[in-house]
Amino acid sequence: MTEQATVAKATETHRSEGALMPPVDVIEDASGITLYADLPGVPKDRLSLQVEANTLTIEGDLTLNAPEGMEAVHAEVGLPRFRRVFTLSRELDGDKVSADFNHGVLKLRIPKTAHAQPRKIDIRVS
């Protein structure tokens, strides 16, 4: 876990009162980071993604079409909201985030800025 992620977790617990923390997978490769988040029950129009000053916020409202007069007898998903915040590090390009949301799974691709891409350095032998 990177230090940025740890910092993000600290801010997140502070702010996440009244919201569920969606489980995520974060995978980094040479050209960027891929994030998957489970947001079941969130319709596309109730999902909000925000990148602001190196902070990525994922928020979603859960909508279940419950019949009228339903009485909950057992609830493991006990809040109608998801929220999770991450701090992006400098080499990530927050302006070029692409998102894909399908069957309640959000896939985010955050590319690294061009100058942060790995380069092979040639060693010259004199």
Partner: peptide
């Protein structure tokens, strides 16, 4: 791991079960 999460509700006419199974 508690997957999938389950919510169960009752109405006088039916029993409603919600299973949270994203990405399937």
């Amino acid at each position: 791991g508690g997957f999938p999460g389950l919510n169960v509700g009752n109405t006088p006419k039916s029993v409603e079960v919600y299973a949270f199974v994203p990405g399937l």
